[in-house]
Every structure is written in structure tokens, then in C-alpha cells.
Amino acid sequence: MLAAHGMRGLTHRAVDRAAGLPSGTTSAYYRTRRALLTALVRRLVALDQAELEEAARRAPVPRDAEDLVAGLAALTAQRLTGEGRQRSLARYACAIESVHHPELREILTPRENTAREAVRAVLTAHGVPETAADARTVTLLTCVDGLVFDRLVHGGQVSQAELRGLVAGALRTETADGAGR
């Protein structure tokens, strides 16, 4: 509903129609629009977490930068097609809505999962100090998320070259004089 019609299209009646339920069913479970939206956000986050955990189980643990690029490419492709695209559109609509409803922001806060741990492990294995690896993991995944958002809005796919550049930046280490290598 949300992906197809935006935030204004998310109503109790619209959910009832889309789910083939008798009128009033959704409002019996979620009395207010805020309750409906909160339940939706919780479900989106649960689906995203399950997807990331499943991807981590199916794919080999990334050992190097190219493995990490390949994993990120698979993730971005999934987020831009089919059900993943619909969920991404809904997630971004909810993220914008969280500006006005801070309780949603807490639910949408990125969670630890095996995918995040894998990114962090690649960074530390390539010499990024552990404290920097935490911050760079967040930055890298936020940049990837931004690319997904851009492609949802403007079309196209995220290229491996773009992902390679982001991974290279995350792997860059600082020398004693502050220059990167």
C-alpha cells in the first residue's frame, strides 16, 4: 500500500481493501493511524533484518574487498527489484515520516546483524583500527543506502565501480602525517 500510493494512501480502509478484509478489520487491530504506521515500520524492520540474516547465511563470509563489493552489489540489486523495491520505497517513506514521529525513528535505527559484522570484519582484517571500523561500517552502509535511494528515485542500478569506490574509501588507512593510503 505504502510503496504503491505513498503515505497519504496508507489508510485503514485501503489496507482492508488491499488485504481483502472486511471493512473495519484493520482499525479493530490498529485503532489509530499512528498505531498502524508503527506496526508497519516494525514489520518492515523485521523483514529487512530477516533478509540480511538470510543473505549472510547463503553467501560466503567476505574475505576481501572484492567479496564485500559482490555482497553489496547483491544487496543493492535485491533492494531495487521486486518485493525488495516495494519494501525500500515503503521504508524511505517511513523514514521521512519519522521526522514528524520520533517514535518511528527509534524503530528504524539500524540494528546489528551478521551483515554489519561481516563488513566490520573485512575492514579490520585490512588494517582499519577497530574503533574506526565501527564508524566506517556505518558510513559505508549509509552511503550504499543513499545509492539505493538515488536509484529508486532516478532509475538505474548501483554499479560495482561505485561500490568498489565506497569500499576503497572505507579501507583507506591514515598515516602518521594524516595522509590516506
Rank of each mutant, 00 (worst) to 15 (best):
A3C: 05
M7P: 13
G9E: 09
T11S: 14
T11A: 05
H12D: 15
V15Q: 04
D16A: 03
T26E: 00
A28Y: 15
Y29H: 14
Y30R: 08
R33I: 03
R33L: 06
R34Y: 08
L36E: 05
L37W: 02
T38R: 12
V41W: 07
L44S: 05
A46S: 08
L47T: 10
L52P: 09
A55P: 01
A55C: 02
A56Y: 07
R58A: 11
R58S: 09
P60F: 02
P60C: 00
A65T: 06
A65Q: 06
A65Y: 04
L68G: 00
V69H: 07
V69C: 06
T76F: 01
L80K: 00
L80G: 01
G82K: 01
Q86G: 15
R87G: 01
A90T: 00
A93C: 02
A93E: 15
C94L: 14
C94N: 03
E97W: 11
V99D: 11
V99T: 11
H101Y: 13
P102Q: 00
E103L: 12
L104P: 12
L104R: 06
L104S: 06
E106D: 14
T109E: 15
E112F: 06
A118Y: 04
V119E: 04
R120W: 00
L123P: 03
T124W: 04
H126Y: 07
A133V: 12
A135R: 12
A135K: 11
T137G: 05
R151S: 08
L152Q: 08
V153E: 12
G156W: 07
S159M: 08
Q160P: 05
E162Q: 09
G165A: 15
A168Q: 14
R172S: 15
R172N: 12
A176N: 11
G178F: 03
R181P: 10
